[in-house]
Design a protein around this nucleic acid. Sequence first.
DNA 1: GCCAACGTTGGC
DNA 2: GCCAACGTTGGC
Length: 154
Amino acid sequence: MNYWLAKSEPEEFSIDDLKKDKVCHWDGVRNYQARNYLQEMQLGDLVLFYHSNANPPGVAGIMKVVKTAYPDPSQFDKKHKYFDPKSTSEKPRWFCPEFKFERKFKHLVSLSDLRAQKSLGKLPLLQRGSRLSVHPVQKKEFDTIVDLGAGTPA
DNA sequence: GCCAACGTTGGC
DNA sequence: GCCAACGTTGGC
């Protein structure tokens, strides 16, 4: 059982959209390192939903992996903004898993809240200039963030 | 394989 | 909208 963090811009797709849709396929990731992490995800893994480019940015809730990564259909669709002319169906480049809405935090755990936690010092999200949109999270870090989201005093 | 140019991410 | 930090591309 592993833990992850995945970013989305809430104007594109927010945790409320996921709550409404129940399930989503996490498409559009076009970064190799992030892609590799998506492929490592196993059924039942828990994923923190991070709102990037938001006001304020932060972790909004939790998702659960309900389908492991398969070729991202948007890479083959010429009209799609995530179309990749260099990818073929024989050798797809990009993959997406499916996530199910698990729950929304009572309180958004903002980026500044995360930075204020000494125990989260190694969280990849907080590293200088980290733009990686999908990355693993330690169980301890995951639990800390969930506690913050539940409103437990910092 | 180097590296400059360019594009993207994402906080502010 | 700005800009720093990266990742990718492509000429050589």
